[in-house]
Design a binder for these strands. Structure first.
Lengths: 109, 109
DNA sequence: TACTGGTACATAGTAACGCTGAATAGAGGC
DNA sequence: GCCTCTATTCAGCGTTACTATGTACCAGTA
């Protein structure tokens, strides 16, 4: 992945994963696979797990352990009220930034 | 400034400043002031200067020293061909990310 | 039994970036 | 002289994503 993308993901990946969780609960492995399908080609496994741990520590998610059909236990994460709140703030921040960028891009031509 | 914004600016502020320079050459103090007016309320002084130094090291900008009407010499930065190229790549990366986020946001409701 | 491959989670170490806070310095106004 | 505004620089810090590796469970196969 490009270095620009790597840096741009800081702060954004968090929101992306929260948004994914807001649609439906999911576990790390699945989230990583989904991100890769969506074009974030080399998101590292460890990256998502670290993120999920942080969510848990901040109290943004609830966790349930569910047996997998194949392999070790899955840790299924779901967004709780606080996480929803946090996600909304993320969207506000993102909107502002995207607005500014659009303006700059338009003005630059 | 919010912590979310701080993290989101990583990788993005770089593009923002490059975009500003692509419109017309500018110097650190002015850029910082302009960013603050545009709503990036507490961009730290040092942040922009560090960015400009990095641009210089990567060879994305040309630098001229010009006397100020009031105060020490200004270091005026202008985007060169390589910088222009880099900025275009930034826009491509940004477009991809913004597209993904828009999709997620739409799907989440 | 041993091997392979897919699923699933965890973690130590590293690099990059923006922030904090302070220092330096010139010019003009009181 | 002292303060304010302009203008740049730098050391140290916290957060984040990446790299690389390790653990573990299960199914299929030879």
């Amino acid at each position: 992945m490009g270095k620009q993308m790597t840096e741009m993901l800081k702060g954004t990946l968090e929101g992306i994963v929260l948004a994914i969780l807001s649609v439906r609960p999911a576990y790390g492995y699945k989230i990583t696979a989904r991100l890769r399908e969506q074009g974030f080609s080399d998101i590292a496994e460890g990256t998502v797990y670290a993120l999920l741990v942080r969510f848990e520590q901040k109290g943004l998610v609830d966790v349930v352990k569910i047996p997998s059909e194949k392999g070790p236990l899955r840790k299924v994460y779901s967004l709780n009220a606080q996480g929803q709140e946090y996600l909304e703030e993320f969207w506000r921040t993102w909107s502002f930034l995207a607005g500014q960028l659009d303006q700059l891009r338009g003005g630059g031509r």
